[in-house]
């Protein structure tokens, strides 16, 4: 994903150098007494240490103290090295898919049976370093999503609202009539890149798409989230079609917020997610090269 060079001859060397650089950062910024930190840094570390145990709490693996410590080191080091934003809640969620993928090279079976103590500390350091660089790479394209007032997210939420209006005018009008702001539900989607809204075992599939988009990801997110909001599922067994669009139109303000904060995705498999993604691709190719289509 661009943090290692495409030329395989150089890859080993660059990886080694980057891993050392990460460890140096940890030694320099994390492994120091609080007396050498500023008040802001102490606050940030406190916030991170509060959030790590609350990260993906429904997956037992993340309750292992060593896993939480790794998360804490990655997040704090990233935050110190990115002072324009610092740590923003929700970034803790974004590390987890990387962690799972890199760990899966060492741990077999389902995540429920994993134990971090089966991995040597040298390997854990390497995994942390790789996660750190992947997180940096992912967020480099979205810096203004986490800086003051989060203008990047505000802009994308506005685009999402416009896109939904184009695609499904009745839903858009209903949401508006009920006084529901897109920011009230979609903010979290953008801030945590949908991790909170789907089962955790599907997140790596979603991450594949994100990483494949590279620098174009922020714009593409708008299409994924529009497709997600207007989810259409076809259940072959019952020959039934589920459309969230239809559901949304029957709900009042309170029901809308409740529905959107607890979306019925717990039974989803890759199949449902892929339907969402393929519609996103379709709309992207239909609308993205036609800016007037979205102009207000």
């Amino acid at each position: 994903m661009g943090y290692a060079p495409p030329n395989s001859d150089r890859r080993e060397g660059v990886l080694r150098r980057k891993r050392i650089e990460y460890l140096d950062c940890v030694a320099q910024f994390y492994d120091i007494p609080d007396t050498e930190r500023s008040d802001d840094e102490i606050n940030m570390l406190r916030q991170i240490s509060v959030d790590c145990p609350r990260t993906v709490p429904d997956v037992a693996f993340f309750q292992q103290p060593q896993v939480q410590k790794s998360l804490e080191r990655i997040l704090y080091t990233w935050a110190i090295r990115h002072p324009a934003s610092g740590y923003v809640q929700g970034i803790n969620d974004l590390v987890t898919p990387f962690l799972v993928v890199f760990l899966s090279e060492y741990l077999d079976g389902s995540i429920d049976s994993w134990s971090i103590s089966d991995i040597s500390s040298a390997n854990i350091s390497n995994i942390e370093a790789d996660c750190y660089w992947c997180l940096s790479q992912l967020l480099d394209g979205m810096q203004d999503h986490y800086t003051f007032a989060q203008p990047g997210i505000q802009r994308l939420v506005f685009k999402l609202k416009e896109l939904v209006r184009r695609i499904d005018e009745p839903v858009s009008r209903h949401v508006e009539d009920q006084g529901l702001e897109f920011l009230q539900f979609a903010f979290r989607w953008f801030n945590c890149l949908l991790i909170r809204e789907i089962p955790f075992n599907l997140v790596t599939r979603l991450w594949d798409t994100y990483l494949a988009e590279g620098d174009a990801l922020p714009d593409f997110l708008v299409y994924i989230f529009a497709s997600f909001l207007l989810t259409e599922l076809i259940d072959d067994a019952f020959a039934a079609k589920f459309q969230w669009s239809g559901t949304l139109r029957t709900l009042d303000f309170q029901e809308l917020v409740m529905f959107l904060q607890h979306l019925p995705t717990h039974n989803w498999t890759d199949q449902e997610l892929e339907m969402v993604l393929s519609r996103a691709y379709m709309w992207h190719s239909m609308f993205n090269n036609s800016p007037s289509h979205l102009a207000s």
Partner: peptide, 23 residues
């Protein structure tokens, strides 16, 4: 303030992003 206060009407164990809605 964050982390200090958590009303927990709901079984919300994750950090609040934006706002949580309960009735």
């Amino acid at each position: 303030d964050s982390g200090y206060v958590h009303m927990k009407f709901s079984q919300q164990y994750k950090a609040t992003i934006g706002a949580d809605f309960v009735t």
